[in-house]
Design a protein around this nucleic acid. Sequence first.
DNA 1: GTCTATAGTTCGATAGAC
DNA 2: GTCTATCGAACTATAGAC
Lengths: 207, 207
Amino acid sequence: MSASHAALPTKERILGAAEELFARHGFEGASLRQLTAAAGVNLAAVNYHFGSKDRLIEEVFRRRLDQLNSRRMAALQKVAGEPDTTIEQVLAAFIVPALELSHDGNGSLFMRVLARAFAEHDDTLRKFLSDNYGHVMRQFTAEFARLLPHLSKEELYWRVDLVTGALTHAMSGFGMIQRKSDVTEHVHREQTAQHLIRFAAAGLKSP
Amino acid sequence: MSASHAALPTKERILGAAEELFARHGFEGASLRQLTAAAGVNLAAVNYHFGSKDRLIEEVFRRRLDQLNSRRMAALQKVAGEPDTTIEQVLAAFIVPALELSHDGNGSLFMRVLARAFAEHDDTLRKFLSDNYGHVMRQFTAEFARLLPHLSKEELYWRVDLVTGALTHAMSGFGMIQRKSDVTEHVHREQTAQHLIRFAAAGLKSP
DNA sequence: GTCTATAGTTCGATAGAC
DNA sequence: GTCTATCGAACTATAGAC
């Protein structure tokens, strides 16, 4: 009998606690001692299951980004390359999967981890993210280029970068994305998406 | 004879090294040992001059933000409250002083420190920044509210937050704000300001 | 005001019993 | 696969000589 049906395997408990503590205290700020205590596992378990703290950090990213980027790519495929594609549709393919994630359990904590990774400027981490998920940004940028043919390559990169910055900032929960009690979570998510899409589309399209 | 005319006082050397190392490795990641070694001063000097690492961090912010926010407020006063004020003018009052700073010596490193502070979500640091510099954001928001009277308070906060996120991201040097060799630095700064202002104005004004 | 020396913690990682 | 125990290194902070 495999262990895959266990309620919460040690490995998953570590990943969950790591996500929360990395979000709150950063990669250097969260120690393996705090982390294993929060997960209710032994200190030595991290090195047994992951090999090192650095490889644990990578797994925290992999677990969420594999799913997030698959959904983004699937959503992009549905609209990309068509003659009547709109900027708003492409932005929705990028934004909606991230909002779904950030409303799913500890997903919002992961968005904060992601925002930290952006601020870190750490070469090792940047290379890992670029190697594994760089193709997603390239696909989206290519589609924006098709829809905004009057923009120079430089100008386009500029705007995509600004949009990415605004969205990362917003979805790391820094802002006021808080649901009022009189709307359902589904409606709120829809409204948030419309906010972000409208703002980003205006910036991308400006003359 | 006072020590104020010394070429580079110990205190300033520490602040300079701290700014650089906090930008590159974060507040937890940069140790007092690395920091004092880089500054060429003794390990004990930090506690003598600043009392603790936390108070050193605050001084790193104070040194730059006092000047940055004075310039922002001065620029805002010149255009605020007039009948023909434009969104672009208010954005320029916010952005241009930051660009001047980021092209002045190690100023761009400070913008990275600032971006880290945003990502940290640390309550103590947030309170320090809010207590000392919160009035600046409130003044700018009030002027935006005057120029965009059709927006609800909630909608306005939303957009100002997104603009702040995009600009912080951009000015932390993550993007491609790199001068080509065939333009002077002054011209490049002007072009960058126009980029950011146009993008932000489009987002703020969108229906 | 600057130094050496060190106290007192905490860190990541591993060896080895079970 | 999980535990205890511990190594060696790093950390912040301080005491006290100069």
